[in-house]
Design a protein around this nucleic acid. Sequence first.
DNA 1: AGCGAAATTGCAAACGTTTTAAATGCGAGC
DNA 2: GCTCGCATTTAAAACGTTTGCAATTTCGCT
Lengths: 347, 347
Amino acid sequence: MPGRVTTLKELAAQLGLSITTVSRALAGHEQIALKTRQRVTEAARQAGYVPNTAARTLVSGRSGFVGMVLPIRGPNLVDSFLGEFVTGLGEGLVSHGSDLILAAAAQGQSELSVLRHVVESGRADGVVVTRIAEVDERLAYLRQRNFPFVAHGRLLDGDFAYHWLDTDGAHAFGEAFDMLYDLGHRHFGLVTISEPMTFRHLRQDGLAAAIARRGDPSVRLDVATAPRFDRGARIQAINRLLHATERPTAIVALFDELALTVMEEAARAGLAIPRDLSVIGFDNIAASAYAPPGLTTFDASIRQCAREIGEMLLTVIGNRPDAPLTRLVRPTLVSRASHGPAPTRQN
Amino acid sequence: MPGRVTTLKELAAQLGLSITTVSRALAGHEQIALKTRQRVTEAARQAGYVPNTAARTLVSGRSGFVGMVLPIRGPNLVDSFLGEFVTGLGEGLVSHGSDLILAAAAQGQSELSVLRHVVESGRADGVVVTRIAEVDERLAYLRQRNFPFVAHGRLLDGDFAYHWLDTDGAHAFGEAFDMLYDLGHRHFGLVTISEPMTFRHLRQDGLAAAIARRGDPSVRLDVATAPRFDRGARIQAINRLLHATERPTAIVALFDELALTVMEEAARAGLAIPRDLSVIGFDNIAASAYAPPGLTTFDASIRQCAREIGEMLLTVIGNRPDAPLTRLVRPTLVSRASHGPAPTRQN
DNA sequence: AGCGAAATTGCAAACGTTTTAAATGCGAGC
DNA sequence: GCTCGCATTTAAAACGTTTGCAATTTCGCT
């Protein structure tokens, strides 16, 4: 990189042109003579010129960034979700030359305040919001502020007047029920979390709806609930399910991590999977393939979804559509060996 | 948020002060009367004022961002590493108010060109570089450019004149050998990759050094090599090892994913672990705990390392130390059930 | 009352870009 | 030779902040 020219001014001086002309030439404006355009482009390439982002942002009002707030969890909580999501988002953005900015929330700092900072400081042209809560102040803020965003997930109240992409957990849980019902299961367990996330309801409602559709009064559903990050409570809740006088023959877990715990506890209780108990998860995390006997689950293809979210957001930023962009992605069943026919009753 | 005031100018007008004074008051300059400072601070808080990042960056030359280039891999390659790393990095940065910018490399675009773009455009005050290659053009560029960076990993040639943090893979592999030797193993296998990453050499050299230290001529080491992302070739290489006329009794894998494949193939070949074969990995990814019988491996605590890298980089950006900051993190052995005494020879 | 120093505040330039509006050069038409 | 219109180029303002220097106010002291 010979003769480091960093600014438009230097480049202009070197070419004997005005800043304006150079700027326009690089932007490819038709009004600049073709010969000049070529000359400028070549000189810029030679000099390794890269426009200054801050200056461009300041004048144009567009930063070329998409923001996301990093959810910081407890110290030993790895987010198998995050790596995939970030990768996918990056893929979706790169084609349009956007980059991703990740702002972490410090301990004790609310996610909302970080989000506000990102928005108000003009760091980003739009943001992605994940894991929607039942009452989500982030969405409320963004909508009131009329700031471009795409949500990964939905609110419950049917108020869908914003752009979102979601995985159809309701459908998946219905599918799981139907499959298990057809295998003879009548007594079901659901392991869920107590945090007010909307996906919890959507999935549970999908299960309930499928049960209702079947119209079989002999179907029974027991629900075990525990806080998301309290491993002890989770194990307790699961064991209450496993050691009830009438034990479910099939357990559906809100997501794979819960399902894996169910399988561990079942093994500890001497139950063979799938002979004594069928287990079905959701997410298809890497460990699910390895945990014996292989967890049957649904693959939500997070990376692909994140990529689409990135593309949606760029559309929103560019076009400001007034009709909401929405997309419901149907997860695919990954059939492994953790489910099978209901055991013949003898209990 | 009543009366949205967004700029310093508006805030100044509202307070009847000059822009200069307001700016200085918010920055806490002593020269501004305490009373004024308080008045300004309160008004800014009320108005929800957040300084414009672009303007600040433009004049100060500091963006407050740390950059990193997202390695985009093949479509179905999840990077269990990335999520943890990004989370840790975010944690390390947030305490000093920095954010992270992630730039993805588009298909066919070199990682170097993206890095150059990030640097030259002034988007970031410093960058993090991971997965160091034997001949790493990114490091060469950054050093020549004298741009602040911290590397996750080391070059081989002893030319350590830059800031880095690395996991001591050499030590870990030595430890693994010593442990297995003491369990009676004499015939070892190493499963490694063909990509020119420095960590491959460091770990292999650590193993070789431990063997040499022991000075036992009966120790034998067979090496199986395959491209990182070619599952077929990987399986082939591993099976050559497993089906050799004289099979190793202990296999050390460069990282867990390889170790898990070894365990799968061993199971397929009817070998019981750890009775017939001991396997040891490196990384401690989530799946390693679930894959039967539980993989013995080393935990590199990626998240913690990334956090330290973030803190190091902020130091580098702030202080520009001339002595290199370096840190070698010793991974800890996670002892599960995939290793045991060497089988008694009968072959 | 007046002077000077100290305390406090403000003016204006600068950062590097985009963009509006205007200027310049040039050939054609009369 | 003069004007008009077109193609091409440029001057200057603007974006919102920080900061060197200058201006203003305050206040103690004589």
